[in-house]
Simulated scan of single mutants.
Amino acid sequence: MSTADPTTTIGLTTISRTVASLAVGVVHTLERAVVGEGRMRTARGNAWEAVCADRARADRRAELDRMVAQLAADRRQRERQPVS
């Protein structure tokens, strides 16, 4: 005895989910074959890359702040010097 209703149809969302699921599987398999097991992207690796990127941005921002402060100090110094 079958429990499936013969009038049940497959909806567009069911097909989309199926296609998306298959696409993810293909991409995952392809990445594994091309990149290799040891170089697969992981959540831990992604998080570490984000931390490194944040640190690099903070370093660049701090360097820019130092440069702006130095330029402002130089300008103040020039403004204090008497004009010859």
Rank of each mutant, 00 (worst) to 15 (best):
I10Q: 05
L30T: 12
E79L: 12
V83I: 03
E79M: 04
R17N: 10
R61H: 13
A33K: 10
A43K: 09
P82N: 03
G11M: 00
R78M: 04
L71P: 01
Q81W: 01
C52K: 09
M40F: 06
A53H: 15
G45N: 04
M67W: 03
A58G: 08
D54K: 06
Q77N: 05
M1Y: 08
R55K: 10
V83Q: 06
G38P: 02
V26Y: 12
E63V: 11
D65I: 12
V68H: 12
E79F: 02
C52D: 14
V83R: 08
R78A: 15
V27S: 12
P6S: 03
A43V: 15
V27M: 06
E49W: 12
A72H: 14
A43G: 07
D59G: 14
S16I: 02
R39Q: 08
C52T: 08
R60W: 11
A43W: 07
D74C: 00
R55A: 13
T13I: 01
T14W: 02
H28S: 10
D59A: 15
G11V: 01
A73T: 07
E79S: 01
T18V: 00
P6M: 03
T7V: 03
S84G: 06
Q81M: 09
T42F: 05
P6E: 02
A58N: 13
T29N: 04
D65Y: 09
G11S: 10
S84F: 03
R76C: 01
A56F: 08
C52L: 13
R41S: 11
D5C: 01
V51E: 15
T3D: 09
D74F: 07
A47P: 00
M1N: 02
A56M: 10
A20R: 10
N46H: 09
A43Y: 08
E63N: 12
A33W: 03
A20I: 07
V19I: 14
A53R: 14
A69M: 07
R66F: 13
M40G: 04
A72Y: 05
G36I: 05
S21M: 04
R78I: 02
A62C: 06
T8S: 10
T13V: 02
R17T: 05
E31I: 04
G11Q: 01
R61N: 14
H28N: 13
R57G: 14
Q77G: 08
V24K: 10
N46T: 15
T7Q: 06
E49Q: 15
T13F: 02
D5H: 03
A58K: 14
